[in-house]
């Protein structure tokens, strides 16, 4: 599954439509903006003038993510803030009453849904707010996979502090969900490395969502053997933690 970052230079494309053969030399991103170095041959609008230079354009950062259509899957919300219906609108064939999208919230817990607030395919449930980098659980009843696209008009800060909640939510059994929001698949990280980064205590658990086999790969700090120390080989990996004390996790910097 790929999580590609595609820069769409909307303003740039608009400029280029009447200018055939524009060549982009270099781009640099700064938060939500992008600078583009380019050259363009003479055009009918600028006779016998070759020019090169640097221009600033408004950029929309787009992400594509493949999800399964036949069961539960998880992904990180990298679109702008919205609601669960905005999430649902991005999913094809989201139309069955038992299908749902859900966001993890630390505001409530019940034994059936835990802290997942669900919005169903028949528009029932709770159309809760969804914020950038929230973890989305999706459950579909069709077959195969599909690719969903998210776009952010603002920059995404991958390095951040995540508060893993145990005591703050009445009844929470210690579960929390979060993600690395960038590609760490080539960094040689294992689940135990994530456990170290979080600072888990002995017996606490961090699980990585393997979106190839669609299962959680769990690491029990101080107990699991190396046989269960899986390499994290996907982009935008999702993590589930089960803790018994509140933890502040400084999610590592992206490469």
């Amino acid at each position: 599954m790929n999580c590609k970052i595609v820069a769409i230079f909307i303003s740039f494309l608009l400029l280029c439509i009447p200018v055939a053969g524009v060549e982009v030399l270099d781009t640099e991103t700064f938060g939500g903006r992008m600078e583009v170095d380019y050259t363009a041959p003479p055009s009918t609008f600028r006779e016998s003038v070759s020019f090169g230079g640097r221009m600033e354009v408004d950029a929309v950062i787009m992400f594509s993510y493949e999800i399964r259509n036949d069961g539960a899957d998880y992904f990180c919300w990298k679109d702008d803030d919205g609601t669960l219906s905005d999430v649902a609108a991005k999913i094809a064939n989201f139309d069955e009453a038992e299908e749902y999208v859900a966001v993890w919230s630390n505001s409530s817990w019940d034994d059936d849904n835990w802290c997942w607030i669900k919005y169903y395919g028949d528009a029932s449930g709770d159309n809760a707010n969804v914020y950038q980098l929230d973890i989305i659980k999706v459950y579909l009843t069709d077959s195969g996979t599909q690719t969903i696209s998210m776009s952010s008009s603002t920059g995404i800060s991958c390095s951040r502090t995540v508060y893993l909640d145990y005591t703050g939510t009445a009844g929470n059994k210690g579960y929390n969900y979060t993600c690395y929001c960038c590609d760490i698949s080539g960094e040689g990280l294992y689940i135990s490395d994530i456990a170290d980064e979080i600072g888990l205590q002995s017996g606490e658990v961090v699980s990585w969502w393997d979106n190839t086999s669609y299962e959680w790969r769990g690491w029990i700090e101080g107990i699991s053997h190396s046989d269960y120390d899986y390499a994290i080989n996907n982009t935008c990996p999702i993590f589930e933690t089960k803790i018994h004390t509140d933890v502040s996790w400084v999610v590592g910097s992206c490469p």
Partner: peptide, 8 residues
């Protein structure tokens, strides 16, 4: 379950 639970 809505999340994982490990027996070991």
């Amino acid at each position: 379950l809505e999340g994982s639970h490990l027996i070991r």
